[in-house]
Design a protein around this nucleic acid. Structure first.
Length: 219
DNA sequence: ACGGGGATTTTCT
DNA sequence: GAAAATCCCCGTG
């Protein structure tokens, strides 16, 4: 299984920190998924933090249930949940049992773009991974990946990446009905693949203000 | 069993 | 900008 990048995985200690810190520092890292003999993935450009305390929008706010148990696992655990007949993926943060996680909301597609186009049934680059459910479909991630460990699993990982970040923005989270005031959404300012209103980041990749592709990025 | 709501996406006007 | 599509999950009875 030849990896498309020589970068190493993020260590456990990276995730075992306050959720807001992890959410911000995940920007620019590489999310890689091995599926049907090929690598898929891209660079993280948008995240949201969901806290263990005083955050009614978090799935952990009403305690542990059978479906959200992964959220209470070790930092670096994957938490995949179903919503509106689709799926979204999170990375568990902070200490074991906290019930906090970071939602991965958007990627700049880099690896396996043709395969991701098939999974998404489109030829438009911008429709591959611009949104939490879109990127799960592109990467063929669903509930069967729930509770996997990003540090040891063979088919999914998050690694360092040689990237140059433009300014990082912090804004309220998207699509929630509670705790709307908390500023826990982080994204690369101006990146073409960030979700939400198009006018906030409508600059095509050929122009300025974005993540640069990693130097060892491949097909 | 039932029903409302949801960290969404797509399509329509 | 609004609404449909679509289904899982959990509180309630």
């Amino acid at each position: 299984m030849k990896t498309p990048s020589k970068q190493k995985r993020l260590p456990r200690a990276f995730y075992n920190r306050p959720t807001e810190v992890v959410a911000r520092e995940l920007l620019g890292k590489a999310l890689l998924r091995y599926h049907s003999g090929t690598w898929l993935g891209g660079l993280i450009v948008e995240t949201e933090a969901y806290l263990s305390l005083n955050d009614l929008a978090s799935h952990s706010a009403r305690g542990r249930t059978p479906s959200n148990q992964a959220m209470f696992g070790r930092p670096g655990t994957l938490y995949v949940y179903p919503i509106h007949a689709k799926h979204c993926m999170n990375v568990v943060t902070d200490q074991v049992g906290c019930g906090s996680a970071v939602l991965i909301r958007a990627l700049e597609p880099v690896w396996g773009i043709e395969k991701m186009k098939e999974h998404r049934q489109t030829n438009q680059l911008r429709k591959l991974t611009r949104g939490p459910a879109m990127l799960c479909q592109a990467l063929a991630v669903d509930r069967s990946q729930d509770n996997l460990d990003l540090l040891s699993d063979d088919e999914i990982r998050i690694t360092h990446a040689k990237t140059t970040l433009s300014r990082i923005q912090t804004k309220p989270r998207i699509g929630i009905s509670q705790a709307k005031d908390l500023q826990l959404r982080y994204f690369v300012d101006g990146n073409w693949y960030v979700s939400g209103l198009a006018r906030d980041h409508d600059t095509p990749p050929a122009a300025a203000g974005r993540l640069l592709n990693p130097l060892d990025g491949g097909t």
